[in-house]
Design a protein around this nucleic acid. Sequence first.
DNA 1: CAGTTCTTAGAACGCTCGTTATAGTAGCGG
DNA 2: CCGCTACTATAACGAGCGTTCTAAGAACTG
Lengths: 190, 190
Amino acid sequence: MVGRPVDHRRRAELLDAAVDHASREVFAELSFRSVAAALGVSTTTLVHHFGTKDRLLGSILERLRERLVASSEEIAGEHPDLATAARAFWDWSSDEAQWPSLRLFFAVYGHAVQSPGTYGGFLDTVGADWIAVLVAAQGPSVEPADATARATVVVATIRGLLLDVLATGDRARVEEAAAAFLSDLAPRST
Amino acid sequence: MVGRPVDHRRRAELLDAAVDHASREVFAELSFRSVAAALGVSTTTLVHHFGTKDRLLGSILERLRERLVASSEEIAGEHPDLATAARAFWDWSSDEAQWPSLRLFFAVYGHAVQSPGTYGGFLDTVGADWIAVLVAAQGPSVEPADATARATVVVATIRGLLLDVLATGDRARVEEAAAAFLSDLAPRST
DNA sequence: CAGTTCTTAGAACGCTCGTTATAGTAGCGG
DNA sequence: CCGCTACTATAACGAGCGTTCTAAGAACTG
C-alpha cells in the first residue's frame, strides 16, 4: 500500500509565501508562530514541511538565493564589458522593487559576520555568483587574477552603496556617488 | 539631605565591559542575563544603571560609535589626499584587531536596514563622520559635491570589502581587490 | 470499502526573556 | 547616629519561544 503522496507543490507554495513574509518583516524576529500566522496555517504545518526552525530559515534563504542569482544572471549576463555590466547591476539593485529582498539579504549578512557557520553557505554562493558574472563580463582577454580583483571591488562598492542607501535613506547622495563610480569605471574597461 | 551620590564611574566601567562583551558575542543574542553573567553582576544592576534593554543597547552602540569615530579621526585626519587617507582607512580596518568591533558594527547594520528607526542615529553618525573625514582629506580645491560623491564611494567600497572578508574569510582575494582599488584611486587624487 | 500515509490543527511542556517587587547594604549630609 | 539615596541581589511574574503529543480529516492503492 502506498498511501497519500507527498505534496511537493504545497511545500513550495508555503516556502514562497514565507520568503515574501521574511522580506517584509524583521529577520531576527521571525518565529514559527509569526510565519504561521502570516501564512494562515498552524505552526505544526510548518514543522511538518520544514522540520526545525533552523531548517525553515535555511530553506527560506536557499529560495531567496535562487531568486537573487536568477536575477543577476538575467541582468548582467549579456553585457559586453565590466562598466556596462556594473551599471546594469546598480540599476537593478537601486530599484526599490528589489529593496525588500535586499534588506533581507543584508540582514542575513549582519548575522553571518558574527556567526559564520550558520549562514556561510548562503553568502558564499551569492557573492561568488555575482563575482563570476562580472568576471565573465570582462571577457577572456583580461588576466584572471585582475578580473577577479576588479569584480570583487565592483561587487563590494555596489554592496556598500546599497547598504548606505538602505540604512540612511539618503538616496540623492548615494545616487550621485554611484554615478561618479560608474563613470570612473567606464574608461578602464576597454 | 543629599544621600549617596551617583557613581558615574561605575556606570562607565560597566558600559565599557558591556561593549567588549557585545563585540565578542552575537549581537542578536544579547540579553540582560548574558551581559550580567559576563560582567559578574546581577541583571538588576544593569537595569539600575541603564533602564530598559533598548536603552542598554543604545548606550553600548553610543560607546562603540565614540570608539570608532575617535579611531577614524586619529587615523585619517592627517593625510594629504583622498588616496592616502583611503589607504590608511583600509589598513586600519583590515587589521584583525579591529574585527570584533567591526563585526558588531555590521551586525547592527544588518538590523538597521530592516528596522531603521531603532539604530538609525548610530549609523547616520558613523557614516557621516567617515565621509566628513574623507571630504576634508580632499582639501578645499575640490568641488564640495564632487568631494562628497567620491568620499561616499570610497567609504562604500571599503565597507563592502570588509563585509566580504568578514563574511567569507577569503582574505587573499579581498586584499588583492583592495590593492587594485587603492592603486586605481591614487592618480585621481591630484 | 479497507489500509496506509500525508496533512493539518490544538494543546501543552520546558525554557528564556524583559521587567518588577522586595529587601539588604553602602556612602553621604545634618 | 539618623535620614536619605545609590547600589546590588534574589525571587518571581507574564509573555513568547521551539518543540512534541495527540488526534482528526484527506488522498491514494488495492
